[in-house]
């Protein structure tokens, strides 16, 4: 069985449109104009990772949402799991930038951290 993926190379501003085919574990890349693109296509299909950014509910703060992100990139197919794990999470101010909000989110081995300080606001 073969699978075909489409990617846009992000190695240079040209942005080649790549077609990557996976057939029995064998990867072939089409549409690249330099070797960087070929390499990018291969990596992107083998182990694509992304930083996931979102927000969680925060109490006693200036705003009702606290921006958070995964401390490291997580596998692309885990993005939605990470987002779902953040639903319903409520934290309380004060929070410090870099503070861990969720450990090992969605079993990725990666923590979710706060993107900013949020002071406690008396209301």
């Amino acid at each position: 069985m073969s699978e075909v993926y489409e990617f846009l190379c992000i190695r240079c501003p040209k942005g080649c449109r790549l077609k990557v085919m996976v057939e029995e574990g064998r990867v072939t890349v089409d549409g690249y104009e330099c070797l960087e693109g070929k390499k990018y296509g291969e990596e992107e299909v083998k182990n694509p990772k992304r930083i996931v950014t979102s927000t969680v509910r925060i109490l006693n703060a200036k705003y009702p949402r606290l921006p958070v992100r995964t401390a490291e990139p997580v596998p692309k197919d885990k993005i939605l799991d990470v987002i779902n794990a953040l639903k319903g999470v409520v934290v309380k101010a004060p929070v410090k930038r870099g503070q861990v909000i969720i450990e090992n989110v969605a079993e990725t081995g990666v923590d979710v951290i706060a993107e900013r300080d949020m002071e406690c606001v008396e209301k």
Binding site: I51, T53, P67, R69, R97, E115, R116
Partner: peptide, 22 residues
Amino acid sequence: CIHDGFGTKIFGVALSGPEFAG
């Protein structure tokens, strides 16, 4: 701008907007 990709030229790492500001 809570997405990442800020600061790759200045800090050498991709930060989020609030982190870059921080």
